[in-house]
Design a binder for these strands. Structure first.
Lengths: 320, 320
DNA sequence: TTGAAAGCGGTACCAT
DNA sequence: ATGGTACCGCTTTCAA
């Protein structure tokens, strides 16, 4: 017997007041209520086990206090950690997040955007990296994370400076031939530019480059490819790739960091327990999540790209 | 100028029909509409860029087609992969999922349940492992995953049989002293029972046990503890723990699997690229997600605990 | 085949 | 301080 839900009407009836008063009590406004009336209502709410219907409220108020979050792949640890940070940030402000994956497919992402819009989300978080979706007639705030959109503000780590800082560290260890594992992409990725910056700065010539997917398998393939060109260090543009590189190196019977050093961009938890533990350039996920959520709520109008400094975390893989 | 949203009223007006007809067209029912009227409406929808308001629909229909998913920690790869599978399953059926983390804290979980109920989710997915939450006056279907609840059905891997199968495999490799890394818990966990089953079955005496948290750090601590008792193989009750164990072993200068073999329960992607790659008892996450979502939608009444067979995946860490 | 209208559960203005 | 009530956008019955 699924007893139908208690509504504000039941409460009003039980407490012998009008529905308006119940509303005033529940929301602590916008009108004052006499203390004793208030107590009657509270009592009725308690006894009846009343829970306001957020759907009705959303309809009336025109806001669901819900964010939509679309990542290319929920299974990717980086996005999982990002999502966790966003959830935490949203929860703290009474929001809730509809999270979904787009399989790294632009068409799917576009469809998911439509679905979330239909559900009246109050803001949209779009995480890297797919093509620019069509955002015309999206009438809610949108923030891009780890990607830059023409039509929306974005929040990202300082890819270029962070990568440069990491590679520079490798150079300080004495490495002169530093390979790069990077993702495919239309324009030159900032992490690649950062790697170049550091090499140039040190007067070093460019090391070997392997372009591959952002995955462990991709890193593995790239690692094998790079090993043929005997670099003494490898900078991977993502944790996943670095983990794959590590495997390729181990299989080749080489030691890290003695024979070859490795440093990765991202800094997810997995890197702390890889073998050896990976030195990383860590994305400030918490700060990024905080900023993204804040912007969504405050609804800034100007389109701007905000970036945050990364953190260099030294572990064993670089030789430290 | 954030032009306010197009409603069904605008469409009706533009097409010169009533709102009812618009509804019939959009939902392809419950009444038939003359083809030409239909075309007019479709045209109006297209021109105006109308998108039905799912919130209003939900209020009227009494269902949001939304699931609530609460995990102890969204950053845990196992839960991230589970969430991904659930998202996929839900999407395919036109549902969407509100995902949130409870920090492994019962009180937080209880609060999140209330929040999701207020938001009228159509079903609730509660993932391991915290205390039994209070589910009285929860009037929607609830499915527990990887945990058993008094008041709701559950979907889990066959922990005991799967663990036994894994340990048995270790025994077949010739191991006679097999340690166990397991989580803390009130009652004896099924994975521990499975480990015992296999040892008993083979007439072996019990190996050393280390009880710790379900984390990489926990596994590391447990690994160090176990190494003092010189087992020749270790069965870890989760991937995370196994990864920690691996680190402890490497630091001790031992080789896997030559000096000590390792096998883990879970089978997340991370294990495929650890060093060496971990042999695992894999949870059938996709099947579990499918079953959980199906049950939520079909709204079975009986409380039952469904379990699914695991898969033994052999890689290098066991000696294969 | 189509239209009018009631009602889903709240909110908040306008009266009293 | 409190009550009555219109309205948020949509679905569906009832009448035409």
């Amino acid at each position: 017997m699924p007893k139908d839900p208690v509504t504000r009407n039941d409460v009003a009836m039980y407490a012998g007041v009008s529905t308006a008063v119940v509303s005033y009590v529940v929301n602590e406004g916008p009108r004052r209520v006499a203390p004793e009336t208030r107590d009657k209502v509270l009592e009725a709410i308690r006894v009846l086990g009343y829970r306001p219907n957020a759907t009705a409220r959303a309809l009336r108020m025109g806001t669901t206090r819900t964010f939509g979050l679309i990542t290319p792949d929920g299974g990717n640890p980086l996005f999982a950690e990002l999502a966790k940070a966003i959830d935490k940030e949203a929860s703290a402000r009474g929001y809730v997040v509809l999270q979904t994956g787009a399989d790294g497919d632009p068409a799917t992402e576009q469809a998911k955007i439509a679905e979330l819009l239909a559900r009246q989300v109050s803001g949209l978080l779009l995480v890297a990296p797919t093509d620019d979706p069509d955002l015309t007639d999206v009438d809610i705030p949108v923030i891009a994370i780890n990607r830059v959109l023409r039509a929306a503000s974005s929040v990202s780590p300082q890819y270029r400076a962070g990568a440069a800082r990491g590679v520079e560290h490798l150079i300080n260890h004495g490495h002169r031939r530093i390979g790069l594992v990077i993702g495919h992409s239309r324009r030159t990725p900032d992490r690649e530019l950062g790697w170049r910056d550091a090499l140039e700065q040190a007067g070093l010539e460019e090391g070997p480059i392997a372009r591959t997917s952002f995955s462990r398998q991709g890193g593995y393939d790239a690692g094998r490819e790079l090993l043929d060109q005997v670099p003494t260090a490898i900078f991977a543009s993502s944790d996943l790739q670095a983990v794959g590189v590590l495997r390729a190196i181990h299989e080749a019977g080489l030691r890290v960091p003695e024979d070859i050093a490795v440093l990765a961009f991202d800094g997810t938890a997995e890197t702390e327990y890889s073998w050896p533990p990976l030195s990383v350039v860590r994305q400030p996920l918490e700060r990024m999540a905080h900023e993204a959520v804040t912007r969504l709520i405050d609804g800034q109008d100007a389109v701007e790209a905000v970036t945050y400094p990364t953190e260099l975390i030294l572990r064993r893989s670089c030789g430290c």
